[in-house]
Write a protein that binds this DNA or RNA. Sequence first.
DNA 1: ACCTGAACACCGTTCAAGT
DNA 2: ACCTGAACACCGTTCAAGT
Lengths: 205, 205
Amino acid sequence: MPAKRPPVPLSRERIIEAALHIADGQGLRRLTMRRLGDALQVEAMAIYHHLPRGKEALMDALAEHVTTVTVEPSDGGWREVARAWAHAGRAALLEHPGVLALALTKPPQGTALMAIREQAEQLATAGFGDPARAAQAVRTLRAYVMGSVAVEIQRSGWAAPPEEAQDEQDGRLPAPAATRAEPAEEAAAAFERGLEALLRGLPSS
Amino acid sequence: MPAKRPPVPLSRERIIEAALHIADGQGLRRLTMRRLGDALQVEAMAIYHHLPRGKEALMDALAEHVTTVTVEPSDGGWREVARAWAHAGRAALLEHPGVLALALTKPPQGTALMAIREQAEQLATAGFGDPARAAQAVRTLRAYVMGSVAVEIQRSGWAAPPEEAQDEQDGRLPAPAATRAEPAEEAAAAFERGLEALLRGLPSS
DNA sequence: ACCTGAACACCGTTCAAGT
DNA sequence: ACCTGAACACCGTTCAAGT
């Protein structure tokens, strides 16, 4: 039998990882400091040592996590840049549906805010226009990406069992099997079409 | 001095109204059954008589409220129909920023779901195409509307005081005075431009 | 430096009881 | 039918204390 190995030390990263797992699996409503402590084999109060502002700091960190993306600069023109950021942003949000409400609602901070600024710079240098117009384009693209993921997640919980202790506030993960075949691919295709429409129309904005 | 008049009887409508007021003013996090009871001059437990599923039912009702819009059928073609729904949807969401997280996250139900279906029918009869394509267009438009309001609300809390007991999860209403002049009009114009881009590109989707 | 235990003020929800 | 009071299990957070 294996010796009881010394427990992995707590860390901001491990806390966030565990919190995402709980939120995705049971819903944001059930993400509790005490439950989070249990998942990490630690008393809830230990978390405050790594996230001094407590649950508020945790929520901020989760939003930042699913909202921070990086994209290598490309040389395919501003539309290619925009596509890359849109795809990366959508993928990051879809990975953790449980914290989508935070991602759509909290003002961008830290690395997430830096990513937004980098996106604007990349668009500008790829020929989109002056910084102000690039920043405006980023906002439009972010709106489309965030909204698309929102309706996508909403639909995944659409045909929820009518009589049930549902999860509230957001993401129940054991989503009922889709109402149609391959809804993920369908959603991806729809996302692509709307994105292209936006990219066609953006410059005249 | 006025005689102590008999208290207005509790009702689903009054409960929802008070809940929206609390969520908009203090944030969703502070919307509590007990606080809601106080606002209604009633014990918290009385609310359960009108909303049997308790807080879960309240959240559903709030999401439905800010998400239900009606638009008179017009004869200006499908683009005019789409514009009307987009404007109405954005206005309804902006009216109650405190519950935006619910609106973006809860699957549409009841009257909200009916409104979505009516939007699709109006688009189809206004010449957009067959029902399936109209439904797809509605999803794209809803995504854009919801995402636009999300970034708009996010930005209203952007320059939040760095050292402060912030509200969590969403909508603090005493938003810090804008970082630029007339951000609301700017946001409205940006919304318009993105919407027109989408309307130009939609049919080819 | 990092974690625990006990404590405090507050939750959501139930249930029997009042009117 | 509508509301209250007391009770229960559970929150977030503090603080002194342990190691």
